[in-house]
Amino acid sequence: MIEAYFQRVAGCRTLNQINAVHIAMTNVMTPMEALAVRDRLAGGSWMFPAENVGADGSASLTAMLATHMEKIVGDFVEAGKERAEVFQRVPVARDVWLFSRGGERSGKTLIIAFTGNADRLMMPTPTFMQHLDADAVDVLMLVDRSKEGYRRGLGGIAESIEGLILALPRLGEAQRYRRIVTAGTSGGGLPAVLAGLKLGVDAVMAVGCRSPHAGRWQDLPGVGLGGAELLVAWHGETAAKGISIVHGAQHAQDAAAAEEIAKLVPARVVPVSVTGVEVQHNALYPLVRAGRFSPFLREHLGV
């Protein structure tokens, strides 16, 4: 990943290309990889190719990337740890990765994580992983590049949200874990709730959910029901525990969607407030900056 990051960035010709590559790569980086990239940029051992942008451009773009990586690694401090968590990234299927330290899983919790349209969990992936204990937690991370909110499943796995959810225990080898929880942000929020209900998991944390009554959630492909109907039907099938529907305190649309979900299934609506900050759709990153994200994960996911 580290060499791939520098190779892909070096092939860019515009600022937009650089930003797109940087975001895409940090969306799947581990904390150790982010630290290594930061150190190489900060140490001056790599410079953006001058033949692409000139000497001045090389210096400024290299400094920009260094600043971006310094910010990610700087967020690690808020997790209150002296060392980067040692996760490894293992491809499971197309657009599905397992982040794990390895070793015996019988005492661990598996987080099944549904990213949103930004292909991350409201923060760079290394930041999210750094707030977990790699000895106690693995993460099965899903990315829906179609931006369909998993309503049509995922390519190569299933063509419906129900088929995708039913495939998750196999993909994540769920039987090997002590606990299973689901988490999702934005377009992945409602899928995380549905997966939690269908699989009967130990906890659910869904952030910035879409309304289950929205047009896009009606007559789901391969299911024949709408999002609201599916919530009610699957709640009747299983006994998922501890469903938290999280929203930014200053985001009226997400607050309304959270209340709509809570009218359909037993769930706790959790508004996020941070002193001096207007918490909008991204309700998680302000918690990172406030040093409150680790306890928030413990409270709502038990990790």
Results as ranks from 00 to 15, higher is better:
R145I: 00
S186G: 04
K241C: 06
A267T: 11
A228W: 04
N117Q: 02
A195Y: 06
A66D: 08
L166G: 13
G224A: 10
V9F: 10
P31R: 07
A84Y: 00
E3L: 04
V90Q: 15
I23P: 02
S211H: 07
F128P: 07
F6H: 11
P271G: 13
A249R: 08
S60T: 08
E78L: 12
I112Q: 13
A4D: 10
M32W: 02
R94F: 00
S244A: 14
I112T: 14
N19C: 06
R89V: 02
F48D: 07
A233D: 10
V204I: 08
E104P: 14
A158S: 12
Y150Q: 03
P295Y: 05
A118T: 15
S294C: 00
A183D: 03
S100K: 10
P191C: 01
H235A: 12
R152V: 01
Y150A: 01
A20R: 11
D95G: 03
R83C: 04
G242V: 00
N19E: 15
G74C: 12
F87Q: 10
I111E: 04
P126N: 12
R38L: 00
M69N: 06
S45D: 10
G226E: 14
D135H: 05
L164D: 11
W97E: 05
G302M: 02
Q175V: 00
R94N: 09
H213T: 00
L166W: 07
T275S: 15
L164M: 06
V73R: 00
R292S: 06
G236F: 01
G163M: 01
R83A: 13
I157Y: 09
A256K: 08
W217L: 05
Q17M: 01
S294R: 15
K263C: 13
L110V: 03
A59V: 04
V92R: 13
G43L: 03
E159N: 14
G149T: 04
N27D: 12
A113Q: 07
L225A: 08
H251V: 01
Q250A: 09
L168R: 14
G163R: 09
R101D: 03
D254F: 01
V207H: 14
D138A: 07
G103E: 05
A10P: 00
G227H: 14
V204W: 10
G107D: 08
G215N: 11
L140A: 12
W46R: 09
K198N: 10
A240E: 08
E229Y: 03
A118Y: 11
F114S: 03
G103C: 09
P271K: 09
W46A: 10
W217G: 01
K147R: 11
V201P: 07
W97D: 13
M25C: 13
A174D: 05
E33G: 04
G153S: 06
V272I: 15
M141K: 12
E70I: 00
K147N: 14
L35H: 03
D202W: 01
S106M: 09
E299L: 13
L142K: 05
L190E: 05
S146Y: 09
D119M: 09
S211E: 14
I165G: 06
V288F: 07
F128A: 13
A267C: 09
G200Y: 02
M69S: 15
L140E: 15
G276P: 00
G153K: 03
A192N: 07
D133A: 06
A34K: 02
L166S: 09
S244T: 09
S244H: 10
G222T: 03
V207D: 12
Q250T: 11
I157N: 12
A134Q: 12
D39S: 15
V90K: 15
D219T: 08
